[in-house]
Amino acid sequence: MPAAPSKRVKGTQIRRHFLIGNTAHVLPSPGFPDPPPDGHTKGWTVYVRPLPNGPDITTWLKKVQFKLHHTYTDASRTIEAPGPFEVSETGYGEFGVEIRLYFAQESGEKAVYREHYLVLAAYGSDDQRARQERENKIVAERLETIEFNEPTQEFFKTLTSEEQFNWLKVKKGRGKGKKPDFIFEGAVEPTAQLPEKASEPGQAGAGGAWSVQYERQVLAQLQQSAAALDHSIEQEKRAMEERRRRLEEVGGAIGAK
């Protein structure tokens, strides 16, 4: 008989941040067939990954299904824990990859869907595009968040256990017969939250490593873009009104003849 479902922790919400994205390279490139398949110009990897300083993603994510373009053999690819949750292929065109996330059985949560549009061409500012072409590496990723509302008691213990950060630490022995220590040696302390600042430049969004600071920068850029768009719309409205007025004048002049 299946185990009875665990009770839920009332009034509790736990969030997990993670990354969905892809890398892409002009072929030939290490790690991809050489020579590449006929007509294929790019090698790419689409992935679901934890934050660089975040908890072990497999504490809550147990399986990821990637649905590729129908022209690929076995277009539906399923990757189970411990992963890595990624699929590598070669091709020439961009398309949307459907992604289905399956959670740990003890969570009692249903699978959820996400989608990532495969980016194969350089993007961003002139400097950013030049760097991507020079390094032959495109990185297109975004930050995603999963919210577990009132998780089961068993799942709550997993999500709050210190052991989920062991993957970020170095295992060091303490002598024969003694339990080893796990020591963190990185520049950014492990946390389930976004760090305030990145410890070093990264590839996130062709800008910098994911952090609260970078998130604020992205939001500010979006606000500026929205303001510029609103301004353009207002200008077009005024121009349209002026065109309408002129057409009425022309129509009136023609009618008067």
Rank of each mutant, 00 (worst) to 15 (best):
A4R: 14
R8M: 04
K10S: 11
K10R: 14
T12Y: 00
R15H: 08
H25K: 13
H25M: 04
V26L: 10
P28Q: 07
P30H: 09
F32D: 10
P35H: 02
P35I: 02
P37Q: 10
G39K: 13
H40F: 04
H40T: 13
T41Y: 06
T41K: 15
K42I: 06
G43E: 06
G43C: 07
W44M: 02
T45P: 11
R49I: 01
P50V: 05
L51N: 13
N53A: 06
P55G: 05
T58E: 09
Q65R: 15
H69T: 08
A75F: 07
R77D: 03
T78F: 03
I79M: 07
E80V: 14
P82V: 07
P82T: 12
P82I: 08
P84S: 06
P84N: 09
P84C: 04
F85K: 12
F85P: 10
E86G: 05
S88C: 06
T90W: 05
G93T: 13
G93K: 12
G96C: 06
A104D: 14
A104E: 13
Q105E: 12
G108V: 09
K110D: 11
E115F: 07
E115M: 11
A122C: 12
S125G: 11
Q128S: 07
R131C: 00
E133Q: 13
K137V: 00
A140T: 02
L143C: 02
E147F: 09
E147W: 10
E150L: 01
T152M: 03
F155G: 09
L159C: 12
S161M: 03
E162W: 10
E162L: 08
E163W: 06
Q164H: 08
F165H: 10
L168V: 12
K169S: 07
V170E: 15
G175Q: 11
K178L: 01
P180Y: 04
D181C: 05
F182W: 15
I183G: 08
V188E: 11
E189P: 11
P190K: 06
L194M: 08
L194P: 13
P195C: 00
A198I: 01
E200I: 00
P201A: 01
G202T: 02
A204N: 06
A206P: 09
G208S: 13
W210K: 01
Q213G: 00
R216E: 06
Q217G: 00
L219C: 08
Q221R: 15
Q223P: 04
S225A: 11
A226H: 12
A227G: 11
S232R: 14
I233W: 12
K237E: 11
M240L: 04
E241T: 15
R246C: 00
L247Y: 10
E249F: 03
G251I: 02
A253E: 14
A253S: 13
A253F: 07
I254C: 05
K257R: 14
